[in-house]
Nucleic acid binder design. Structure first.
Length: 589
RNA sequence: GGGGUCGUAGCUCAGUUUGGUUAGAGCGCCAGUCUGUCACACUGGAGGCCGCGAGUUCGAGCCUCGUCGGCCCCGCCA
């Protein structure tokens, strides 16, 4: 089929083009046949242009147009003319094309859903017909933003002297942290490659090679359960530098975000970003990725209630726990049912229960107020800055849980009361620093790295490493925007002996460490420079830029929450022959 | 691994409370009318494995069990 190539896109013609003869290519978005006048909205990714056929002038075109249906691809040639009735809603709304010829380039079946922006259809259908979903402008604009982000990243890091190096996608499995995706080797039967969870070790080795400043926009893979902000394959902006300290990273990344926000949203964001220690983030906001666009900070009342008559609190305190609360401003009107729901919500996060107090008509209304004397109640009110109409939500639990539950409640209350909606156009960046190096894993009964095993301990905490490992802080940092972790990094260990000490703290024997990470330990022997870096979650940055809560809106071909690709059906079973070639036999499970 | 929720026309949903005649609506689709629409309007029409499989019952879209799938959450995600 020979078609007439477009002279313009469907988004660019303006009143200045009046009287020009143009040819457009595109998809039929809407047909409006008025009898004596036929309107066609032609769409491509640049916009929509209205085509007109006047049956009285061109009866043969009118006849031919009866064949046209939604989503047919056509070419149309005609004269740009001023509209009698302009449409202020679209950029091309002042003009239309009076067509003098057109042909159908390709027909379309009736699409399973309409291609329009205010579409409300199931994700299942959208994902099965992803190519149709992606025709929608609201989705296309996300990918245009994503494209711009690639360009900004490349130009920024190039201007800063960084070198982009590709690291392998087929690498060694290092099962520390997330589960690996495994790829069987045909040539070496019984052996497996792993897809990278991150190019961490490779970029460190590039530092040892002297590349000094490395950047890569890179796919990473983690075989873990999905979430609305998590896909099994995702994209990182991976960065590593030599001869630097934490401040250099902060400065570099703050400059990057300033440029991204300027280039893509045309917004000025102020730097430097505030910094919070992990401890402060947890005790004030109950999260290591706090949303600091709003207040509602956590108030610890352990000291106030440690001698009260409420056994639930005192027992918790005596076993080393804490009692803390958030003040849900103006929420004293919450119904019993709503409070029960919040209790269930708190239980999901591991709370045993949720206590509450309301200040209504100048009096404290609470099922537990009888356990407290006036002095204690007054202190609680004062400490939490409680005013008439406020609701206090109180949690008692072991230290970490107490704060994480309140942190979750804090976000939930903000969502339910519309606080989040009111601040949706704000951006609040911050650094969270001074993470613990290790945390104890109850299941595995050993310490595991909070960040990863190559993270350097703080120099002043090195001596504690074997004696009080849980007290050692790491040279690690996360970058957070609006309650979402969009990146994390650290200064790495460049001393082989320290690296060995960490491996043994993680319960790895010398030979185990040798087998898993011997190549890194070897490399560290050959003049490793001090180095560090960060990995930024590109998908989440795009989500923030586009104001979406769902990672599937910024990934062209995403998986469902059960890891399926509904469009192509992956993952699929494979032929016996393919398996045999790989030396693999399936077991029934 | 666990919890919640949803699955009815091409699409979005109602109907499920209390099992009971021929399962409805809007949009879309098809046919027709219409010269300024842009959510065109109007007239008429077609369209259903009530996700799938068992079970209970005289009778199941509705109740029970299982199963498949979507979404959300906890765990998990160095």
């Amino acid at each position: 089929m020979i078609f007439q190539k477009r002279t313009h896109t469907c988004g660019e013609l303006r009143i200045e083009n009046e009287h020009q003869e143009v040819t457009l290519n595109g998809w039929i978005s809407v047909l409006r046949d008025m009898g004596g006048l036929i309107f066609i909205d032609l769409r491509d990714r640049y916009g929509i242009t209205q085509l007109v056929i006047e049956p009285s002038e061109t009866p043969e075109l009118a006849e031919k147009s009866k064949e046209l249906k939604s989503e047919f691809v056509i070419w149309a040639k005609g004269i740009v003319r001023k509209r009698e009735n302009p449409n202020p809603k679209i950029p091309t709304g002042l003009i239309e094309i009076l067509i003098n010829d057109f042909e159908i380039i390709n027909r379309s079946e009736l699409p399973p859903f309409e291609i329009k922006d205010d579409l409300e259809t199931s994700e299942e259908l959208r994902l099965r017909y992803r190519y149709l979903d992606l025709r929608r402008q609201s989705l296309q604009k996300n990918f245009i933003a994503r494209h711009k982000l690639y360009q900004t990243v490349h130009s920024y890091f190039d201007s800063m002297g960084f070198i982009e190096v590709e690291t392998p996608v087929l690498m060694k499995s290092t099962p520390e942290g997330a589960r690996d995706f495994l790829v069987p080797s045909r040539i070496n039967k019984g052996r497996f490659y792993a897809l990278p969870q991150s190019p961490q070790i490779f970029k460190q080795i590039l530092m040892i090679s002297g590349f000094d400043r490395y950047v890569q926009i890179v796919k990473c893979f983690r075989d873990e359960d999905l979430r609305s902000d998590r896909q099994p394959e995702f994209t990182q902006i991976d960065i590593e530098m030599s001869f630097i300290n934490r401040e250099d990273i902060f400065q570099l990344i703050e400059g990057l975000f300033q440029k991204i926000w300027k280039d893509i949203l045309n917004l000025e964001i102020s730097i430097p970003f505030p910094r919070l220690s992990y401890y402060e983030a947890m005790t004030r906001f109950g999260s290591d990725k706090p949303d600091t666009r709003f207040q509602m900070e956590i108030v610890t009342i352990t000291d106030i209630v440690k001698n009260c008559q409420f056994k639930v609190f005192t027992d918790t305190i005596n076993s080393g726990g804490e009692v803390a609360l958030i003040n849900a401003k103006g929420c004293a009107g919450f119904s019993r049912k709503k409070l029960d729901e919040l209790t269930e919500f708190a239980k999901k996060y591991g709370a045993m229960g949720l206590a509450w107090m309301k200040l209504q008509n100048g009096e404290i209304n609470s099922p537990i107020s009888k356990f407290f004397n006036t002095n204690e109640l007054d202190s609680i009110i004062a400490a939490s800055n409680t005013e008439e109409g406020d609701l206090l939500l109180i949690i008692s639990s072991n230290k970490l849980r107490c704060y994480t539950v309140l942190g979750a409640l804090r976000n939930e209350i903000a969502k339910q009361t519309g606080i989040i909606q009111n601040i949706s156009n704000k951006f609040s960046f911050l650094w969270v620093t001074d993470f613990p190096l290790l945390e104890f894993d109850d299941e595995e009964k050993r310490y595991v790295s909070m960040h990863h095993p190559f993270t350097s301990p703080m120099d002043e905490d090195l001596a504690l490493l074997e004696k009080q490992p849980e007290r050692v802080r790491a040279k690690a940092y996360d970058i957070v925007v609006n309650g979402a972790e969009i990146g994390g990094g650290s200064i790495r260990i460049h001393d082989g002996s320290v690296q060995s000490r960490i491996f043994s703290l993680l319960g790895m024997s010398q030979s185990e460490a040798e087998a898993k990470f011997g190549f890194l330990l070897d490399a560290l022997k050959f003049g490793a420079p001090p180095h560090g870096g960060i990995a930024l979650g590109l998908d989440r940055i795009v989500m923030t830029l586009c104001g979406t809560e769902n990672i599937r809106d910024v990934i062209a071909f995403p998986k469902t929450t059960s890891g399926l690709s509904l469009m192509d059906g992956a993952p699929t079973f494979v032929d016996e022959k393919q398996l045999t070639e790989l030396g693999i036999k399936l077991i029934n499970s």
